[in-house]
Simulated assay, not measured.
Amino acid sequence: MCRECGAEYPPTLIYACEECFGPLEAVYHLEKIEVSRETFRYRPRTVWRYRELLPLDDEEHIVDLGAGYTPLRRCEGLADALGIKSLYIKDDTVNPTNSFKDRPSSVAVSKALEFGAEAVGCPSTGNLAAAVAAHAAKAALPCYIFVPANTELNKVLQAAIYGARIVAVDGTYDEANRLAAQAAEEYGWAFANINLRPYYVEGSKTLAFEVCEQLGWRAPGSIIVPLGSGALLCALDRGFRQFKELGLIDDAPIRLIGAQASGCAPIADAFKAGSDDVEPIEHPETIAKSLAIGDPGDGFYALKAIRGSGGVAESGSDREILDAIRLLAETEGVFAEPAGGVTIAVLK
């Protein structure tokens, strides 16, 4: 269904509303879903334990590498260092390809199989490339990855090892995204964050489900989320709301805090300026390459969710990000990439 005009569409490969070009999202008839806390007790500890709340009709098409149900680490050392009473970190570095992108990729590639797609792929700044490529390999589907030419080599190599064909674009992520969209339309390929996007983003909300379950069926008072396109924060917001509507958690407020790198912070800049317009960053400059999305597709909706929750959006410099990575490693023994370090930098 279109977020803007409310137009409805049957499940298909589609990128945007054909009426107003607004973004689309999956719709669930929550009143028909019968689940309780006990429902999940003995289910496999992956994103698919929440299968009633994921957009797949036939479980035979599930492509599952074991993503999800990652540790929720209580960080007493980091909390003490920052003067915070209670602090937890959701550690998605232990996912199959070492990032949260395994969650939406599992859903996207599963949906591609259900649609009978001949190939899958994505534009990416790194993490999504590896995640989609790994799940495509498991599904025995050809995979095409479009990346900016300056993407970190280890990210590209990881995707290539899974058998993906890499298309290096001499430009920014946004330019790679446009070229990938053209290829998907021309060849009918199923691209995770393009024509599979309404389904793909649903995988990320499992982070919200797990946090609530791991906190003893309680929601956190505040949550800090790294912002690239803004889709992750929107997905978490949607996940918390769905659990509330199903009566799985209490209807308590959850403050959403968005974190960006200063060298590419269009959402945080708009928030601090009191604006609803997210002005694109033409040339992102930050070590947090996986967040270097100058024209965030869900920026407006992320802003709306942050403000509606009473939250904030802030940014950290590259120096602050590096210091945050070191602090997390020294206090908790967790080594995060720059996109994860951004959250600690903003928390400080």
Rank of each mutant, 00 (worst) to 15 (best):
240 F>G: 11
26 A>W: 08
137 A>S: 10
64 D>T: 00
79 A>T: 00
54 L>V: 03
37 R>G: 14
200 Y>F: 05
340 G>H: 01
77 G>F: 03
289 K>F: 14
303 L>Y: 15
90 K>V: 01
230 G>Q: 00
187 Y>P: 07
126 G>M: 03
197 R>F: 05
140 A>S: 09
265 A>W: 14
242 Q>E: 10
257 I>A: 02
276 D>V: 06
321 I>Y: 10
344 I>H: 02
50 Y>D: 08
273 A>T: 04
3 R>S: 03
109 V>H: 11
111 K>C: 06
28 Y>M: 13
216 G>A: 12
332 E>T: 00
144 Y>C: 00
85 K>M: 01
309 S>C: 03
120 V>Y: 02
125 T>A: 04
328 L>I: 05
13 L>E: 03
63 V>P: 07
212 C>V: 05
227 L>H: 05
230 G>S: 10
241 R>Y: 12
24 L>T: 04
321 I>P: 06
181 A>H: 09
21 F>S: 07
190 A>P: 14
119 A>T: 07
140 A>F: 15
91 D>N: 14
16 A>R: 00
342 V>W: 08
204 S>C: 01
237 D>Y: 11
329 A>F: 11
217 W>N: 09
344 I>D: 05
222 S>E: 09
75 C>D: 01
141 L>Y: 04
251 D>R: 08
226 P>Y: 11
185 E>V: 03
282 E>G: 09
